[in-house]
């Protein structure tokens, strides 16, 4: 991989971000850490979505399908069959990648709204299946609880979730900076023209789907072991999907760092709204905020921060 000077400079920023977040447990309480843990998982899902949909333009409304495959695989293997989580988690990730391939099949023929709807159907089908097929194994509508934790305590879980999110973030970010990232973006802009410059777009898309699925798989598997349970309602609810999409779009799609920021912003926002609005109106309000932000600044929070940074520099001169 060619690491140029600009890449190094940005890597410096990543490093600073990493150090800062690692110091956080020394200053904030466990309550805040628990909120941030959720942000880290949301960030993984948003990055997964971004790598597929933000890049290639194949908009997925079905990411909970992928996350659900991961969650159920490791939950069932570890809880019902006593498979150690060292095996059940990797198995879940592999299963999700296979699921990603399934997801990919409609993308051979359709794109745009139709593709998005088909992925939504995937999610809905899995939702119904988990409720009715072999409830003795899946736990039916009530799901499975009492899943083994990987580490205990807010601080440990904070570091674990941050570490995974950070690693995924850096890898995806490096990937999109390569020519592969450019080729994937080109698919979003004009798939036919990518083909007519000699690229097998099927192979490129399959790669993006598999990477995206792997990230969702990692996130989903670790997530269910963190919360200790899985149930169809929470997993395949439209709110969950909505939260992922909003985090990705809010932060600024196709930047990888954007979805991370979006996830932090959204989780913290939702948390502060909780005492004021305990019910579903919260989602309505944040949907509204997201919409306004998206209309005013379609490039997302990330671009606002970049702009602000530039302004500060100008002002200091």
């Amino acid at each position: 991989m060619a690491i140029d000077r600009e890449t190094l400079r940005y890597l410096g920023w990543w490093l600073a971000f990493g150090v800062l977040m690692c110091l956080l447990p020394f200053v904030v309480g466990t309550g805040t850490l628990r909120i941030l843990i959720f942000a880290h998982f949301l960030a993984m899902f948003a990055m997964s979505w971004d790598f597929l949909s933000g890049r290639t333009g194949y908009i997925s409304f079905g990411h909970p399908f992928l996350i659900g495959i991961a969650g159920y695989t490791t939950a069932i293997l570890s809880f019902r069959f006593d498979v150690p989580i060292y095996y059940s988690i990797p198995a879940a990730i592999v299963a999700t990648m296979v699921g990603g391939t399934l997801f990919f099949l409609p993308a051979l023929r359709i794109r745009g709204t139709y593709f998005a709807l088909v992925t939504l159907a995937f999610m809905e089908i899995l939702y119904q299946l988990t409720k009715v097929v072999a409830p003795k194994i899946t736990g039916g509508t009530r799901g499975i609880s009492g899943l083994e934790a990987i580490v205990t305590g807010a601080v440990n879980n904070y570091y674990l979730s941050f570490g995974i999110m950070f690693a995924i973030g850096v890898v995806l970010w490096l990937l999109i900076r390569t020519r592969l990232g450019i080729a994937l973006s080109a698919i979003r802009m004009n798939e036919e023209a990518v083909r007519s410059t000699g690229h097998n777009t099927t192979k490129l898309k399959l790669f993006a789907f598999t990477v995206s699925a792997a990230v969702s798989g990692i996130g989903g598997a670790f997530y269910v072991h963190y919360i200790g349970s899985i149930a169809p309602r929470g997993m395949f609810e439209i709110n969950f999907l909505f939260t992922i999409l909003v985090a990705a779009l809010l932060g600024g799609a196709e930047t990888i760092i954007g979805p991370i920021m979006g996830a932090y912003f959204l989780t913290v926002l939702l948390e502060y709204l909780r005492p004021v609005m305990p019910g579903m109106e919260r989602y309505l309000l944040y949907g509204g905020i997201a919409l306004v932000l998206y209309v005013v600044r379609p490039e997302g929070i990330y671009s606002i921060i970049v702009d602000a940074g530039r302004k500060v520099q100008e002002w200091r001169r």
């Binding site: 020519r179 592969l180 990518v194």
Partner: peptide
């Protein structure tokens, strides 16, 4: 330049990742 880069890019995922523009 990036438009030309897409044209020059090899149809090989590994090379797309490992070799710079």
């Amino acid at each position: 330049g990036a438009n030309i880069r897409v044209g020059m890019a090899p149809d090989d995922i590994w090379k797309l990742v490992s070799e710079g523009a």
